[in-house]
Amino acid sequence: MSRLLPYPVLTFGLVLIWLILTRFSLGHLLLGTCVAILASWAMGALQPDRPSLRRATAIPGLVGIVAWDILRSNAAVAWLILSGGRGGARRSGFLRIPLRLRHPAALAVLAIIVTATPGTAWLEYDPETGVLLLHVFDLVDEGDWLDLIQNRYEARLLEIFE
């Protein structure tokens, strides 16, 4: 089983995507399954260590929080652009954040969250020191942003992945 399907979740997801992109039929189900199994073998050749989820039940909560935060910061950045940065009072800046996360998959998810949220941009991560360099669009209080990344996202990712 594990030799035939090294990544069952990935394989299932690929079959699902294949069926969404085409219309459901038996032929497409078979073809999609073949493609998905081949792709998961290719994946196995690329990446020997598989990400292990420790608590998958925390994922929906994280997704909800992130979707809400993205909507909120969309409104905030849109308003800042419309109002010309509160009449020139907006100040952007760089921010270094020490991270406890080390798991590559968890870091990738954090990168997606940070970049997808308007207002924060992921610039550089140093794997030796674990320090992340962010650029923040509206840097009112550094403590707020540290708190947001470390307590709101990182703590949940630590719970899920490590």
Partner: peptide, 18 residues
């Protein structure tokens, strides 16, 4: 409209998220 490159880096994320 934004003045510096690092500021402008935030602008397209409005279009790519919501």
């Amino acid at each position: 409209r934004l003045p510096s490159f690092y500021d402008r880096l935030h602008a397209p994320t409005l279009g790519t998220s919501w």
